[in-house]
């Protein structure tokens, strides 16, 4: 709690993945990856297409099971078998464009699958609306009504709704999969603001992206994957955008 050291080493580990291996048929998608996220840390997970970023995240969010390796959450060994299990631990994944139902209202989206009920399973609409607005405001997003449909929102606001949902359900770790892709410059900046707000709330973030210009200012640390291998794990102060770029495009050094 009292630790604010810049190197981050003394901060508490939130999630730790050790020697994760994943095969898809004959394809070795993850080759013994070690990956750690500390409390209230923003980690930029970068790499080219097919580097294994999504696979690694899907193992963490319970979508895929690792073939080998261990996962520790808050120091305890866990076996994340489903996305439901991951969410119960406090790991929320915000998939781009997949997270929301466009023709449903904001509050119905935020509470989708976890609706507060009064009796006989009937939804508590009032508390849904109130809590939705509260969650949106906590990440600095001010929308007119919890009844607005998602289709009416801009791309940035949509990401905001998905992030607010994670926040409301007391996520400890929010995984953002390409949150700024297909967004305008202004909307992307809005999403980067949400990420800062998450960090201020003490929530850890994994930010997956191609766009180093988006991730660089937001992240504390960068993990670079290339063809299923981790080739770099660097603090921001020890690197630059150009260095990271070189790391991503450099062919992996086998042997």
């Amino acid at each position: 709690m009292s630790s604010f050291s810049t190197d981050g080493k003394s901060e508490k580990s939130l999630v730790k993945m050790v020697s994760i291996e994943k095969w898809f048929g004959k394809v070795h998608a993850l080759e013994g990856i070690d990956f750690e996220v500390r409390c209230s840390e923003v980690v930029g997970l970068v790499g080219d297409n097919g580097a294994g970023k999504s696979t690694l995240i899907k193992v963490l969010s319970g979508y895929h099971l690792a073939d080998k390796g261990e996962i520790y959450f808050e120091g305890k060994k866990v076996n994340i078998a489903s996305s439901l299990h991951a969410r119960k631990l406090g790991i929320e994944t915000v998939y781009q464009e997949q997270a929301l139902a466009p023709n449903l209202s904001i509050s119905r989206n935020i509470f989708m699958g976890r609706e507060p009920v009064r009796s006989l399973g009937f939804m508590d609409k009032k508390s849904m609306d109130r809590e939705s607005m509260k969650a949106l405001q906590s990440i600095g997003l001010h929308l007119r009504s919890p009844d607005a449909l998602i289709t009416m929102l801009s791309g940035g606001e949509r990401q905001g709704v998905a992030i607010a949902r994670a926040l409301h359900f007391k996520a400890k770790l929010v995984i953002l999969d390409e949150p700024t892709i297909a967004l305008s410059v202004r909307e992307a900046r809005q999403v980067l603001e949400f990420i800062k707000q998450l960090k201020r709330e003490g929530i850890s973030v994994i930010f997956i992206t191609h766009n180093l210009y988006h991730v660089f200012p937001s992240a504390d640390r960068f993990v670079v994957l290339t063809r299923g291998e981790k080739i770099a794990d660097i603090q921001k102060k020890d690197t630059s955008i150009d260095d990271l770029f070189e790391l991503i495009v450099k062919p992996p050094s086998h042997n």
Binding site: S83, L84, R87, T93, Y95, Q98, A99, L100, A101, P102, N103, L104, R108, M112, G113, R114
Partner: peptide, 15 residues
């Protein structure tokens, strides 16, 4: 509604 509107999202949310 969620199932009909975006099945993947609904499933990701545990429905």
């Amino acid at each position: 509604y969620a199932t009909g509107d975006n099945k993947e999202a609904a499933r990701a949310m545990g429905i």
